Simulated scan of single mutants.
Amino acid sequence: MTVEQRTYPDVFSLQGRSALVTGAGAGIGEAVARALAAAGAAVLVTDLQEEAARAVAESIVAGGGTAAHAALDVRNAEQAATAARQAAELNGGTLNILVNNAGAIAPAMFPKMTAEQFEFVIGVHLVGSFTVSHAAQEFLPDDGTGRILNVTSAAGLTGTIGQVNYGSAKAGIIGLTKSLAKELARRQITVNALAPLAATAMTETVRTNEKLSAKQLARIAMGRWATPEEIAPSFVFFASDAASYITGQVLPVDGGTVV
């Protein structure tokens, strides 16, 4: 057989798989949900704002994809369990892909940061990632298609000013990722993290402030903000068979902010 005659499987296809994406009502989460659906996955779109999740899911279905929606506060174990089960039902009881994307911010300089602000952000990002992962574990398969994708940030890798809570949460997610990767490897489930940077509502305060925006752009080697749609294919890669032998890693998707 010549090279030209060889055939290769589509390692990026997610046909026959299901996914649960948190915080998918807008921004990076929405783009990831759409990208996973475009690759063939049946996607449960979840968000704290149910109507936002509904709109994204309906749009995916209207475009020919498979999707459902659910309201989800990632800190709530009962809601997480319900969402994990609902996502698994999209694929005969199996949940292949979990994307822990839900996030929130409560910025303040350290002397003025309250315990409530700190605990809130830790709760949504770190505790939320644990809670949904814990709920999803029983539905993840042992056949090599199980994936947990966590969302961290440059703040978790290098620290950040005015967001001790956010930086701590994102650093904790890296530890969660690496520890889960070691535990779940025996089940052939991979666990990785992505550290994206994009033009979203969460970065709007920085992007619309001339001084802050200039400082941030100076840190980005490529000198521009990504769109959420530029970020999403990286998640498809980690969710697919192309990344079947990668686990416990953190991939910055940030235009060279962290190099």
Rank of each mutant, 00 (worst) to 15 (best):
A108Y: 00
S133K: 11
T160H: 02
F139A: 00
F235W: 07
A169H: 03
T208I: 15
V32Y: 00
E229M: 07
S18A: 15
S18N: 08
H125G: 10
Q15C: 06
G256V: 13
I28Q: 00
P111K: 08
K182D: 12
N91E: 07
I220N: 05
A39S: 09
R219T: 07
Q188T: 02
G92F: 07
G159A: 15
A62W: 01
V74F: 04
T131C: 15
Q49W: 11
P107V: 15
I60C: 02
A214K: 13
T131F: 10
L48D: 05
R187V: 05
A169I: 06
I174R: 04
R187L: 10
T22Y: 03
K215P: 00
E210H: 07
T177V: 05
T205G: 14
E4L: 08
E119F: 02
A136D: 03
A81P: 00
T247W: 03
T131D: 13
A242K: 14
P141K: 12
A102E: 02
F238I: 14
P9Y: 08
T158S: 13
V124C: 04
T190N: 06
Q216Y: 04
A193E: 05
V151T: 15
R6P: 02
T257F: 08
A39V: 07
F238R: 08
N209M: 14
D73H: 10
T177K: 02
F12M: 14
R207V: 11
I220K: 04
V99P: 00
E230L: 05
G256W: 09
T152W: 02
T82G: 11
Y166A: 04
Q163A: 00
V250L: 12
S153N: 08
V99S: 00
K170S: 10
G65E: 10
L194R: 03
G248I: 02
G93I: 07
A102C: 01
A169D: 11
E50P: 01
D241P: 01
P233R: 14
P228R: 14
A155N: 08
N101Q: 00
S18V: 09
F235E: 05
A199V: 10
G64L: 09
A135V: 10
R85D: 12
L36H: 04
A52C: 07
I161N: 04
I60N: 02
N209A: 14
D143E: 14
S234N: 08
R17T: 09
S18E: 09
T200V: 15
F12L: 15
A171E: 13
Q79I: 06
Y8G: 04
P9M: 15
L149G: 04
V32A: 03
E116C: 05
M202K: 12
G159D: 13
V164D: 01
R224T: 14
K112R: 04
L157V: 12
L157R: 11
G172P: 11
T205E: 13
S129D: 10
T114M: 06
E78R: 10
L157W: 03
A77H: 04
Q137G: 00
A232M: 03
T7C: 09
S213D: 09
R54C: 08
I231T: 06
I60M: 07
A171D: 12
E51A: 12
P252D: 12
A35W: 01
A232G: 02
A41F: 03
D47H: 06
G93H: 08
